[in-house]
Amino acid sequence: MRHTVKALRLIIVVLWLAVLLLPITVALSLWEIFESRDNIRIGEPSFSLLNGNFSISLPFYMNNAGFYDISELCVNIRIYDGSNEILEFSTQPLNIPAGRIVASNLSASVSLADALSRDRELLTTSKDLDVNVALHFRVGYVLAFNVAGKFPFKWGAPFSNLNMTYVSSNTTHVSFEVSFYNNAPFSLSGPLRVELYNLQNVSIGSVEQFLDVASNGRYQELFEISVFQASEEGKIRLFFADILISEKRWGSP
C-alpha cells in the first residue's frame, strides 16, 4: 500500500506541475507572438454584394513565433439593430502551426435574402447599428481564447432615396424612371428587374438590367417596359437578385 500511496503522490505532483506549467508556457508563447507588431497584420476589410450574396474579406498575416500551434483562428461578426440580430458572419477557421507564417484572407459571406428576412428596411434606410466582433483561437489545442468587442456602425443603405417615377405609357409600353443612391460601403452588382402588374395583380410586363453601381454612386435609368395588356394603373415591383426591394402603386390616382 505504501508504494501505491507513493506512486499516487508522484503522479499528483507531476500532474499539478503540468497543469501549472501549461498556462505559463501558453502565456509565454502568446507573448512571443504579440511582442512584435510585425507578427500579426490585419488589412482593410473589403465588402462586396454579388448575386444576392453579401461578402466580407479581411487580409490577414500571422507569423506564429510561439511554441504552440494556433488552431481554429476565426473572426465572428454579428450585426444588431437594437436587440435584433440581422447578420452573422463567421470566417473559415485557420490553423497556424508553430514557427510557420500564414498569409491568407479571412472571408465570409451571407445570403442577402436571409439578412433581409430579418430587417427589410436595411436596403432602403440608413441606420445606426451595433457590430459585435469576436476573435477566436485555440492555443496548443487545449486553451481557447475569445476576444470580443462591441462597436457602433453606421449602415449606409444600398438603395437610399429610391424613386420609381412613372413617366409615360401607351398601348404597348410603360416608361419608368428608377433612381437611387448606393450609400453602402460596397458596390452593387447584379440583375435589377422591374415588374409591372395591373390592378388585378396580373403581371403585364417586366424588364431586367444588369447594374453595377460603385459605393456612394448614383443610379438613374429609364425603363421602357413592353406590356402585353394595356393598363393605366397598377403596381410596380423592383427586384434586385430576385429580392423584392420595393413595391408601389403606379398610374392615375
Binding site: 486553451l143 481557447a144 475569445n146 470580443a148 468587442g149
Partner: peptide, 8 residues
C-alpha cells in the same frame, strides 16, 4: 468594453 473569454 472588451470581453475576454478563456476556455480551459
Amino acid at each position: 468594453g472588451f470581453t475576454l473569454t478563456v476556455e480551459f
